[in-house]
Design a protein around this nucleic acid. Structure first.
Lengths: 342, 342
DNA sequence: TTGTAAGCGTTATCAA
DNA sequence: TTGATAACGCTTACAA
């Protein structure tokens, strides 16, 4: 049967002092045993401490360690949202990499609100992480860019590291994939397939990396490209397509959206308007998110090697300046953009 | 005043002491101004402190606050993975709710490894969060259940709160949706549509909530249900369908998978085998994940009101025992399960 | 090798 | 209202 729990009164957590007292040693000795110290401790003591810790169910108070050591084995990641397949994949890869180095990743979410990014960084600084990683967003003309830079500089000055992913708008180390080149080669391949008229869906919010994709595509495309800038979302892309004038819709040959997310929104819009894909309209995206495995027809896109990006990022977050790095992004032609028959 | 502190980059982060000194007040006064204290401070002091803080770019050291206050405004969330649309949606909702109460959510990932759950909880306890929320998993016969319970009990004893989401395998407060009833009513509606032979894809790993879905479906289904237990994943469901004997495949009328993720895997498998959906085989899932908006034909499923779940969870994580709660889950019939024509 | 004592940045207590 | 001063749990010189 169950033993009667005598007291439900909230006790305080077991501390290192408790363990030391129980083991009959000093607090520092207990500390040396339990948390990797270079110092060696006599075996007899060591076992007594370990046993006491086990019996009491001791867990080191991370906050106390952080404050005593002046650093916490944490990488703070700022992303715009967790539900987004692209960002969640990125977060997963980063956590995987970080774990190799015994690092924790804490995630903060901007919800795509520009001002929150600054607030977040400010707050994160209070967590004294080893590094702050900013993924996503990256405005063409950052509204509060100066303040953000100042905040990040301050963080660097106190020994922290700053790494940006896929954004080159701030003067810090950046790991990126080649947005421009990826879109350019995609456009080239699509041109080879026979496409000559494209609608490019860019980002309504002026994001640098997204503009690079637009520019890259236009540069690599052999035909005529019309550019639109709907809201930067699935819904935005869908709404844009839905509101297209009939004649423009009918003349549509290929839609390139700067993200798979928007490409899928565009497809939804095209279907709403009764257009068949890819028979009547071809569609291509960018990112190669996991969701695509369930989409029919299979979506042509540009694959981004997130694992490599994550690896490079974590390395820079820890080891110090390795310099910026750009990993290549390659187009993947699938069923949504078949060769054009004329 | 004494030294030129304005242009010299401090190697250590700016502390409350720095701010106090600069403002010419005591540390406690600065603390009272900068961090919501009930105490009031003379306006002249208040402005001086605020100004000094701004000039120096002060950010409170969260670890120090946590240790001094004995509590950190944090909810620790344990989920099996971040890339999974269901869990990432859950995490998003929880963060949204938590923010209302000025709470931070820290995310830890088990990667579906049973043992990691225990390790994680142990480590999280070291973060001294206000609450630990365990979402997902929940084994029918927990391998190290006793240890996990002991660890969580310890956490509760020291004033922490434990909330489980959609798992009833541990003796703690639980917020759940009605897996059994949701699956049962879905099965009933499908029966009404004329379906009489179903293949049910359960979970290879024995998860309690998943078994409830299987049981609920079987109970509510008017015809004959065959149950299989492939690996609990998209790939598992797909592989199972792919390896089905020809005759069994041909006799397939309806596939119900316990999660949308597996349902989508099943669809992939069915397509690999050349079966058309829904003309030849109907498919239904559970969860109503966002991904479904891009899937054709639209997938019949059971909608889970994650926002409600999140709200109830956060409330319990903070306010104390409100008792367990079950929110209803309703079937949504879509194009993947049309009425049967005979 | 072990223990004493001094921090780490913040909050809480309690005089003044 | 304000400011010494003592915690909070842990690490790290420095002394024994």
């Amino acid at each position: 049967m169950t033993e009667a729990a005598n007291d439900t009164a909230p006790r305080r957590p077991v501390t290192l002092t408790d363990v030391a007292r129980r083991a009959g040693v000093s607090q520092p000795t207990a500390s040396r045993v339990l948390n990797g110290s270079a110092r060696t401790v006599a075996d007899s003591y060591r076992t007594r401490v370990l046993e006491a810790a086990r019996e009491l169910g001791y867990t080191p108070n991370l906050a106390a360690q952080a404050i005593a050591r002046g650093t916490s084995r944490t990488i703070a990641l700022v992303i715009s949202g967790i539900s987004d397949p692209y960002f969640s994949a990125m977060a997963t890869e980063l956590m995987k990499q970080a774990e190799k180095y015994g690092m924790r990743v804490s995630i903060a979410v901007t919800e795509r609100r520009v001002d929150r990014e600054l607030d977040l960084v400010r707050e994160l600084r209070g967590q004294q992480p080893q590094a702050i990683v900013l993924a996503g967003t990256g405005y063409v003309d950052p509204p509060n860019g100066d303040e953000l830079v100042a905040e990040l500089r301050r963080f660097e000055e106190t020994g922290g590291r700053v790494v940006l992913i896929s954004r080159t708008d701030l003067p810090f180390e950046t790991v990126t994939f080649d947005n421009h080149e990826g879109a350019r080669t995609l456009a080239a391949e699509l041109s080879t397939l026979g496409y000559r008229r494209a609608l490019v869906l860019g980002s309504g919010t002026p994001l640098l990396s997204m503009q690079q994709r637009v520019d890259g595509f236009v540069e690599g495309f052999a035909g005529e490209a019309t550019i639109a800038y709907p809201d930067f979302s699935w819904e935005g892309a869908r709404a844009h397509i839905r509101s297209l004038p009939d004649e423009e819709l009918r003349s549509l040959e290929l839609v390139f959206a700067i993200t798979d997310d928007m490409a899928l929104g565009a497809i939804a819009g095209l279907r709403d308007r009764g257009r068949r894909i890819p028979e009547e309209v071809a569609v291509a995206g960018f990112d190669d998110i996991t969701t695509l495995r369930d989409v029919v027809p299979a979506l042509t896109t540009v694959h981004v090697p997130l694992d490599q990006v994550a690896e490079e990022t974590v390395r820079r977050a820890l080891d110090g300046d390795a310099g910026g790095r750009t990993v290549p992004a390659h187009p993947v032609i699938r069923a949504s953009t078949p060769p054009v028959r004329r």
